[in-house]
Computed example of a mutant assay.
Amino acid sequence: MLMLAPGYTMPAAAVAEGEAAVAGAEEGEGEPAVDLEGELPGGDASQAPVVVQVRQGRNRYRVRVRRGLATVTFGELSDYLAEQMLPPGIPSSELRLIARGKTASREDPLCPEGSSKDMSVMLMFREGFFVAAEGAKWLQEKSTELGEAEVKLVRLTKRVEANFSNAETSVQLAELEGLLESLVQSVDSVRVNATKLPQMRELRDRSANALERVLALHKTARF
């Protein structure tokens, strides 16, 4: 991940090189380029807009601004991109906007001098974003897997309570125990962004509860 030290001005050639280096990772190989247009809310409709072109590899997001670049912050631009233009689930806090060779803060105006000329901004993601994205994918997959395990556990519980358990029941309970132990142990080591933390805690609690039920069945079942 390309990083900038606070206050460091990146040469134009390095910016272009860095953009090319992250393009494949941030877009995905072979995916078609995105070209979208939109307008930031607010401002005088009769006033000619200034276009802020946001570049992310081959992707282009053109945002029209009618309020004046001196009155709009990079935070507002990030929020608009996350809500209206980028794929769902990407929080604006994960966006890094680079303008004039420097990483902009959310509080910075797009252009302090209030220029009426169109401007260009480079979009990247903060360090750890893709790790968190992989964590979100893991969470989705394991939530589905846990749901299937819970259904299976209900069936096994009915068999044990009806005294229909056998060697195969023991094998299936052992498989569930291994799966649930793995989930409980893995939750704390998988990184997700803050919006996914409640789902992560729910996965952990459900897994721990199901594991307790499996262990209890092992004690009462007759094989």
Rank of each mutant, 00 (worst) to 15 (best):
I90N: 03
A194S: 14
A194F: 11
A5W: 07
K196E: 09
K117D: 13
D188S: 08
Q47M: 09
T9C: 12
R62T: 00
G128C: 09
V160E: 11
E161P: 15
A133P: 04
Q53S: 11
S105E: 14
R60Q: 03
W138K: 01
L86Y: 00
L176K: 11
V192K: 03
V51Q: 08
E161W: 05
A70M: 06
K219V: 15
Q53F: 05
V160F: 10
V52C: 12
D108F: 03
E161V: 08
S189F: 09
N209T: 13
P91M: 14
L183Q: 11
N166V: 09
A99T: 10
F164T: 04
E39T: 05
A33R: 15
E141V: 15
S165V: 10
Q47I: 07
I98R: 13
A5K: 12
W138V: 01
L40K: 01
M124S: 14
P112K: 03
V54E: 09
G147H: 00
A23L: 03
S116N: 11
E134G: 04
N166K: 15
L211K: 15
P41R: 01
L179W: 10
L69W: 02
Y61M: 01
V151A: 08
T144I: 06
L217D: 14
I90K: 07
A12V: 11
E127P: 01
G178K: 10
A25F: 04
E181Q: 12
D188K: 12
G114K: 02
F129N: 00
M85E: 07
S165Q: 12
E177N: 12
V184N: 06
D35I: 01
T169C: 15
A20R: 08
M10A: 14
T195H: 08
E37F: 10
R204I: 10
E168C: 14
L81D: 00
S182V: 00
R96E: 02
N166H: 14
G128N: 11
G38H: 02
K102G: 02
V151R: 07
L217N: 10
L77C: 00
V171F: 05
E83A: 11
K219E: 15
G42C: 03
I98C: 10
W138M: 01
R206G: 08
V63N: 06
V214F: 06
R204P: 05
A194G: 05
G42S: 05
V151P: 00
M124V: 07
K158P: 05
R204L: 14
G128K: 05
R96L: 05
D118I: 12
S93G: 13
A23T: 12
I98M: 05
D35C: 07
L156W: 09
S105L: 10
S189N: 08
E17S: 15
R191L: 10
G135W: 09
P87H: 03
E37H: 11
E17G: 13
L4I: 06
A162L: 09
V131H: 07
L110F: 01
F130S: 02
R64I: 00
E17H: 13
G42K: 00
G89Y: 04
